[in-house]
């Protein structure tokens, strides 16, 4: 039943056996120990599990692991270079956008797609980009501030 596939995650290629129904989320968390990607609902409703596939923000709980072979995947563990935080990560700290933090990594991954395509997004673009990432702690205001700050700091 299981099939050997290869996944490119954070620049590293992993060979692993997965079942057809295995979600990328399950494989990341349970097979690869990449626990920064969170499960909030497992049904495409919360965004805690967001990762980047070929630069696009996707829900890893709704993505079959088999469907993303040979498509570069980035998780929160692959964000930031040379041991330095990504501007988004730093901005989330500086803007006070982190409370319980359970939504944080997913939201950062969603915002990454936005900042890769729009260098200085406006309020509405930011809010739409993270509309699929539920947060129950912050009311989103400081998350939006953080994304603006990251955009300004990356300019």
């Amino acid at each position: 039943m299981k099939q050997l596939i290869s996944l490119e995650i954070n620049g590293e290629v992993h060979e692993l056996a997965v079942a057809p129904q295995d979600s990328l989320l399950r494989v990341l968390r349970e097979d690869l120990g990449l626990i920064g990607t969170k499960k909030g609902c497992d049904s495409g409703g919360c965004g805690s599990c967001t990762v980047n596939v070929e630069g696009k923000a996707v829900y890893s709980c709704m993505t079959y692991a088999m469907s993303v072979q040979d498509r570069p995947i980035v998780t929160i563990e692959g964000v930031g270079e040379n041991g330095k935080l990504d501007p988004l990560q730093q901005a989330f700290i500086d803007a006070g956008a982190v409370q319980c933090g359970y939504c944080t990594c997913g939201t950062i991954m969603a915002a990454r797609e936005l900042l890769a395509t729009v260098s200085s997004p406006d309020e509405e673009q930011i809010r739409h980009a993270i509309a699929g990432n539920l947060c129950r702690c912050t009311g989103y205001q400081k998350i939006v501030d953080a994304i603006k700050l990251a955009a300004a700091n990356s300019a």
Partner: peptide, 9 residues
Amino acid sequence: DALDKVTGG
């Protein structure tokens, strides 16, 4: 706790 949470919690 913020640093831990933005890097994977």
